[in-house]
């Protein structure tokens, strides 16, 4: 078959050493994302040391993290509901990669934690701590470890990590 498979492969050095013409650009945009009604309240409550969900009035499902509408019934969500500081590890990973794909000397443990009092399986992503790698398990019960109150700023990082209970 006379197909032409084309393309001109380059090495990283071809570019670094200027063997081919290139142009560079560094975008400098700064963003400010509005948290919105539900996540705004979620962040405020985090600063106070509480996890909060929000209820769908049609069938009493408690969303976590809270949101302003129910994606199933398509109605405006109802009351905010304070939840417990405890939950369950739905899944996890032991990561040697940082956000820029650089290698970490010591891995971070990250998981999805579903929160007690919210609908089954509704959780968020967070770190796992005060635990040995060999003891990590899907289904393990965990509890939030908070930053000291004066260091909290209304962010998911107001919780340091979740530890086994």
């Amino acid at each position: 078959m006379g197909r032409k498979w084309r393309g001109t492969p380059l090495t990283a050095a071809d570019i670094a050493e200027g063997r081919v013409a290139t142009a560079e650009w560094r975008p400098e945009a700064k963003y400010a994302w509005s948290a919105g009604e539900s996540i705004g309240r979620f962040l405020e409550e985090l600063q106070e040391g509480h996890l909060v969900g929000r209820k769908c009035d049609v069938d009493d499902t408690v969303f976590f993290p809270p949101r302003s509408f129910c994606q199933e019934h398509f109605v405006r969500a109802g009351e905010f509901v304070r939840l417990k500081n405890t939950g369950k590890v739905e899944t996890y990973s032991v990561s040697y990669l940082d956000t820029d794909a650089r290698r970490l000397e010591e891995p971070v443990y990250v998981g999805v934690i579903s929160i007690d009092g919210a609908a089954e399986g509704m959780g968020f992503m967070h770190f796992l701590g005060e635990v040995e790698e060999k003891d990590l398990a899907i289904g393990m019960r965990v509890k939030a470890v908070w930053k000291p109150k004066k260091e909290r700023m209304g962010a998911v990082t107001d919780i340091l990590y979740f530890k086994p209970v």
């Binding site: 990669l97 990250v110 998911v156």
Partner: peptide, 15 residues
Amino acid sequence: LDRPLKPNLVWIFAM
């Protein structure tokens, strides 16, 4: 909700 944890996209696939 996610970016303040400085995630790597591989995390969600790993999980």
